[in-house]
Nucleic acid binder design. Structure first.
Length: 414
RNA sequence: AGAGAGGUGGCCGAGUGGUUGAAGGCGCACGACUGGAACUCGUGUAUGGGGCAACUCAUCGAGGGUUCGAAUCCCUUCCUCUCUGCCA
């Protein structure tokens, strides 16, 4: 949730920022008006309530003193009638404001490069040189076929399209990667958590998936539960509606979960192979940070994810997202893109975002700063997407005969 | 899933219609005592909104109702616990 007071006091500035995220001026003006209207109605209503309360208090006194209460009661009744339409208007204004405000994306940071889409993202650096192949490297689905690693057909049979089954060594590689990621994150101070894979709607609203992106989620029928699209949801919401002690910050959490996404709107993209599935494994990092420390924490998280790729010997590049490509909740995002020689391109394998206080406002995550309660900053990032790492290992570690090497750091896990 | 009990501030817990936003305790913060600590003592300590402030409004799981007035009464709903059933 954006800071509505900030919006009201710095409308032009806020408007420029949100236009980059595709919000037009009229929408924003509407929001501002709703906010101002609600404030006015509430002020009037509260004045009447105050009067009502003070008159009500007199009743006790009058009755003890044996005075007549008829006149007082008449006044109170009149006051009450006056409040009814205001209460109605306040309720309507509140609902309208709430629904608009929850659909408003986060402001991009000032330093975020400008741009329209992913083509305008800025490459910060490349790590490791792509290997020179003496043969034409194959795509992972070909290798999956010849090695019997991925059973696409039976995944579809068991569920539907965009599901798959890992078999034998591939399944063990998946498991090895999860362990390797979790262990590595632990050495950086992240506490490992094992969380529910379904969360309720309040939590999904807290991190920003609801109400706007319900179509991307798998909902459990007849329950207020959704399959999580990322561990960011349960991990961040661990502290939903809580007030942390400043000494506890930063809270660093990591966890492995499968992630479930309908991939609505992705029809026709990456239909082949395992790049885009309805279910995939991911190890996530989440940080709850003091607002003044979140940039530091962010850098640490990017470095950690990059180091993991380096340890696996996977060439990658570090991309800073332009404002037009930022997600709904993010104020700034760095993507790590791993080199896929079979596809001959870099593909996203990790996305690390600082949401500043955007999620904290929605999820009411605060910390005590002296006497005041302030919103924390929340950050999240993949370390790493497991399925895509399997794909990257397949393509980068393939031999001419189609066999696949296992990176050295993983050998003790397999 | 069936039966019963219950949901109050960071935690425990009192409170069945009128200065109760809520006793008491624990915890926490600050201060005193100490060489330093523990102990002890003193003070402070719910959240959110409006206002420069004094102050004021809302909130005792959530929603609705009764009443001049509700943490307290009524209805609906969610959740938790215990027992039974089922189950890894």
């Amino acid at each position: 949730m954006i800071d509505l007071k900030y919006l009201q006091n710095n409308f032009d500035e806020a408007s420029v920022k949100l236009q980059k995220k595709g919000i037009d001026a009229p929408t924003l003006e509407n929001l501002q008006t709703l906010f101002a209207t609600l404030k006015n109605i509430n002020a009037a209503l509260e004045a009447l309530r105050a009067e009502q309360n003070s008159m009500s208090k007199l009743f006790g006194q009058y009755m003890r003193e044996g005075k007549d209460i008829a006149e007082l009661k008449a006044k109170v009744d009149a006051n009450k009638v006056e409040m009814i339409p205001l209460q109605q208007r306040a309720r309507e204004a509140e609902e309208a404001l709430h629904s608009v405000a929850l659909s408003m994306p986060n402001f991009p940071d000032d330093e975020v490069p400008e741009g329209a889409n992913e083509d305008d993202n800025v490459e910060l650096r490349r790590v490791l040189e792509p290997r020179n192949f003496s043969f034409k490297p194959k795509e992972h689905w070909e290798l999956a076929q010849s090695n019997g690693w991925i059973d696409f057909e039976r995944g579809v049979k068991l569920a539907k399209s965009r599901f798959s089954v890992l078999r034998g060594e591939a399944a063990r590689l998946e498991r090895a990667l999860i362990n390797f990621f979790l262990d590595t994150n632990a050495t950086k101070g992240f506490e490992e958590l094992c969380v529910p894979f379904m969360n309720n709607s309040a939590m999904l609203q807290g991190t920003g998936q609801l109400p706007k992106f319900e179509d991307d989620l798998f909902k459990i029928e007849g329950e207020d539960l959704y399959l999580i699209p990322t561990a960011e949801v349960p991990l961040t919401n661990m502290y939903n509606d809580e007030i942390l002690n400043q000494k506890e910050l930063p809270v660093l959490m990591t966890g492995y979960t499968p992630c479930f996404r309908k991939e609505a709107g992705s029809a026709g993209r990456d239909t082949r192979g395992m790049i885009r599935q309805h279910q995939f494994d991911k190890v996530e990092m989440v940080a709850i940070s003091h607002p003044e420390k979140s940039d530091e924490v962010f850098e640490m998280m990017v470095q950690n994810a990059s180091d993991i790729l380096t340890a696996l010997g996977l060439p990658h590049r570090v991309m800073e997202l332009c404002d037009g490509d930022l997600g709904f909740s993010a104020a700034s995002t760095v993507d790590l893109e791993v080199w896929l020689p079979g596809q001959n391109q870099y593909r996203e394998i990790s996305s690390i975002s600082n949401t500043r206080d955007f999620q904290a406002r929605r999820a009411k995550i605060r910390f005590k700063d002296g006497k005041k309660n302030r919103f924390v900053h929340t950050l999240n990032g993949s370390a790493l997407a497991v399925g895509r790492t399997v794909v990257a290992i397949m393509e980068n570690y393939q031999n001419e005969d189609g066999s696949i090497e296992i990176p050295d750091v993983l050998k003790k896990y397999m």
